[in-house]
Computed example of a mutant assay.
Amino acid sequence: MGHQYTRRTYDEAQELAQELFREQVKDHFSTEEIADLKARGTVSGGVGGFDNWEEHLGFTPDRRLHYDYTVFIPAEERPHFERIYAQILVSRDRSKGVVSVRWKPENPPSQNSND
């Protein structure tokens, strides 16, 4: 029996993103990187970070139709990422899966704290 709703919840989309990441992590990272990620990594996401998908996909995803997840090592200061391991774009539509994964994307530039 399928879901009565056509849109995925935040938690369902995050689970899908994490599942895909776990399945493919060994294809993209060294043993040392995986150990570092297991020790210090975190996942954050939802509706942020859409601006940097345009170069990768050729379009900017609609926030109402997608969730964006980032797997990263947190930093003490801005931009709050010591290292980004992956960004995962998941459709909110249950009939679609993960839209795209950016492995080892560049960290966002540091911002002046006076902004």
Rank of each mutant, 00 (worst) to 15 (best):
G45H: 09
Y85G: 12
Q14C: 06
P105F: 01
D51Y: 04
A17L: 07
Y85C: 02
T9H: 07
T60C: 12
I84V: 15
H66S: 12
F59T: 14
T70P: 07
D36H: 08
P74H: 07
L20F: 12
F29A: 00
D115M: 08
Q111V: 12
E55A: 11
F29V: 00
T6N: 08
A35G: 11
Y5D: 15
V98H: 08
G45V: 03
F81Q: 14
R8M: 11
L20D: 11
P108N: 00
F50Y: 09
K96D: 13
Q14I: 05
S100T: 05
N52A: 08
D36S: 14
E15Y: 04
A86W: 04
Q111D: 03
G48C: 04
T6F: 13
N114P: 00
G49F: 04
D62E: 14
S91D: 15
T42K: 10
M1I: 06
G58L: 00
T60R: 11
A13M: 00
A86G: 09
S44I: 08
L37Y: 14
F59M: 14
G48R: 01
L37H: 01
T31M: 04
F50P: 02
R40L: 13
S91I: 02
P109T: 00
H56V: 11
S113W: 06
V98Q: 06
I84F: 01
M1G: 14
